[in-house]
Amino acid sequence: MPDLDDQAISKVAEVGIKSQLDEVKNLNVEIDIDPLKVITGTLNSVAIAGEGMVMKQDLRIESMEFNTGSVAVNPLSLAFGKIELTHPTEAEAIVTLTEADINRAFRSDFVRSKMQDLNLEVQVDSETAIVDTEKINFGLPGDGKVRLSTEVVLQNSQERKTVAFTAVPKISSDGQRVVLENVEYLDHQELPPAFTEAMLDEAKELLDLKNFEVGDMSLQIKRLAALKGKLILQSEAIVHQFPSS
């Protein structure tokens, strides 16, 4: 077997992860090995730190930190430039999303094509208005809440008005998604229930942990924090295989 060191194995993993991403600003993979242990198929740990990672549905992640404990691998596969797990391994992952990241996803072709089907009329100040689905905005004002807003166009005057509501992000019962609950409209204005539900459903779909999985892994949210300007998801992961290029 050729000599294998931390740097060489880390580079293999880095190339594999990059192959799963549309874009990435910075990516650093550090695999800690003990030469005596690696011969028997054990890596001490794997640490991944990424910035500006663009994944499914044009969803961008501001940062991701991923750390494992001991990892069981096939030592022969390492000799051929591949990291092949022989047993699933546990890890912790911390994902940080910014307001800009989530708004980028809301404005993606994927979401806009679905929202365009909702040509809904609403009543604003006793006047009929049309919802402008291209003006949906997602905000993180802090205090453990999110803010969703959109513009409506008054039919008679063509004046534009903003309709907004806040909601509380919570972890779904299966730990796979962030769901928005406790909706409160601002300024006594409301959208039709169908449109409100559609906006909540899109947020839930975008914040599905499957969108953040790289390679063959499963994530489960354990904690979340909705801070001013950013949303932090702390998850446990079971990794079955790391991605290979």
Rank of each mutant, 00 (worst) to 15 (best):
G144W: 04
E99G: 04
N67L: 09
T150C: 06
E92H: 01
L140F: 08
N156I: 13
V122L: 12
V131G: 01
E99T: 07
L76K: 12
L154V: 07
G139P: 07
L97I: 13
V73I: 12
E92A: 01
V95F: 07
F110P: 05
Q176G: 14
A79I: 14
L148T: 06
Q155N: 10
N67V: 11
P75R: 09
T133H: 15
F106S: 08
A105N: 01
T133C: 14
Q176Y: 07
N74R: 01
V178P: 00
S149F: 01
H87V: 03
S126A: 10
R147S: 06
N137P: 04
D117L: 06
I171M: 11
Q123E: 15
V95N: 02
P88L: 05
H87F: 07
E159G: 05
E62N: 13
Q158C: 12
R112V: 04
I102A: 00
N182L: 13
S157Q: 01
S63L: 01
N103W: 08
S172A: 01
G144P: 03
K145R: 06
E134V: 05
K135R: 14
T166Y: 02
I136Y: 04
D109I: 12
E134A: 10
D132C: 02
G142T: 11
E181H: 08
S172Y: 00
N182G: 14
F138N: 00
S173N: 15
G142D: 09
V111I: 09
E151G: 07
A91W: 01
L118Y: 15
V146R: 11
L59E: 04
N119V: 06
A105G: 01
T166R: 04
G81V: 09
V179F: 08
K161L: 09
V152I: 11
T150D: 03
A79P: 05
V95A: 03
I171G: 11
L120H: 11
L78W: 02
G69V: 00
F106R: 08
E134F: 10
L59K: 05
L118Q: 14
I102W: 00
V71F: 04
A79R: 11
A91M: 02
G175F: 02
G144M: 03
S70R: 11
K161D: 05
S172H: 00
S157N: 00
R60N: 10
L148E: 02
L140N: 07
F66P: 02
Q123F: 15
V179A: 10
A93D: 00
T98P: 14
A79K: 13
E159M: 07
R112I: 02
D109E: 15
S126Q: 11
R107L: 08
A91P: 02
D132V: 02
K161T: 06
E134H: 10
H87Y: 06
Q158R: 15
